[in-house]
Amino acid sequence: MKTNNIYLYDGSFLNLLNLIKILITKQIIPHNIKDTTYQPNLFDEIISLSIPNADIFNEIIKSTSKEIFNTLYLIFCSTNENKEIIIYYFFAHSLKFHNKIYYQRNLKSVSSALAITKYVSNENHKMKGFLRFRELKNNLLYAEIAPENNLLFLLSKHFSIRLKNDYWLIKDVKRNIISIYDKHDFYLISGDNFTLETLEYSKEEKNMNALWQQFYKTIGIQERKNDRCRLNFMPKKYWPYIIEMSDEL
């Protein structure tokens, strides 16, 4: 009986790339690649290789390109349940095609990979706008987000340039990860290892919220009211974390 060879990795991007490198060198075509939480079914053959955690990011960029590396990372941020195997095929193809791979949309593994990256980068762009910080008592800025994709790293990069002289925290509520920025660098840590004792807002916070909500209400033109258009651009799933929308929920 034929079994499905499933390769395991530890859930991190680096570990996945190291595993894929081994598979490609050994010319193994996996049925799928999963992280260690995977529940195998009857036909699965689970294989755990010993994977080095070597820093091969630069090596990958060298053998392909910066764009391809970014594409791989964007796919990794998605919640697609087959993202690992999609990364495997996209990377394998890109070793051959290099940047010409972006014009090979007739290949299924390319078009599905690019559809995922489009979805992830669109949401990332949206979240750069929709994320809302609140000021806590000690001047610390605190934001909660719950995007579909795992965007905490990309968003932290964005805000570490934009708000470089503030201390801030961003919590991905869905995944229970927190990004902490200390005016130099940001660090991603699990929410289990970190609790904010009390979320006490600063004195100004309430006033600013009120000013902003007032501005939001004022700026819309009554004669042009268009709920459908607004919903298209700002889907309801984001509303709970957008302070000016919480009234309308």
């Binding site: 706008g129 934009r162 470089k164 939001y216 819309g220 709920d227 651009f233």
Partner: peptide
């Protein structure tokens, strides 16, 4: 600058009741 930068593509932060972008 000490606070803030710009994004070449522009960023919409909210959408008003008339569906127009608030940036």
């Amino acid at each position: 600058s000490k606070i803030g930068n710009t994004a070449f593509s522009g960023i919409c932060h909210s959408f008003a009741s008339d569906g127009r972008c608030i940036s």
